[in-house]
């Protein structure tokens, strides 16, 4: 299971890559692996406001469906429209080509509620 070092993680297996007051978000390798082949993602709309740990998008595989929660609060600047045509990108490249949305962050302090890659690794181990 790959865990990217420079990212922050949630307990629901989303990642966030903070760059100034903006950030890319997506789901972890662990998440895509447990979902299996992803067949569909319902993306949010640009300019939607999202709250930390609230629903951001929903994602489906053949036999599972789950929600993606936003790791941090903010406004949607951009969504990865390529995923609509090619949702399998999330399986192939969860940390890069499979990013879900770019967000303008409203509260940088929220990152204190997230896990570092080491913490996330331990979290995964403890969850078995």
């Amino acid at each position: 299971m790959e865990i990217e070092e420079h990212l922050l993680y949630t307990k629901e297996h989303e990642w966030v890559n903070i760059d100034g007051d903006e950030a890319y978000v997506g789901i972890s390798d662990y998440a895509q692996n447990s979902l299996g082949d992803i067949t569909f993602i319902e993306l949010p709309s640009v300019d939607d406001e999202v709250e930390q740990f609230e629903e951001l998008a929903s994602i489906e595989s053949v036999k599972a469906a789950s929600d993606i929660f936003s790791p941090m609060s903010g406004r949607i600047l951009e969504v990865n429209e390529e995923l609509e045509e090619n949702p399998g990108l999330i399986n192939k490249s969860p940390y890069e080509k499979g990013w879900v949305a770019r967000i303008s962050l409203s509260d940088l302090e929220e990152k204190n509620n997230l896990m570092t890659s080491e913490e996330y690794e331990k979290f995964l181990e403890s969850a078995g």
Partner: peptide, 13 residues
């Protein structure tokens, strides 16, 4: 069986 395991991912995508 008349068919082998179907490709359900293709069906959905």
């Amino acid at each position: 069986t008349p068919i082998s395991r179907p490709d359900e991912v293709k069906a959905a995508r």
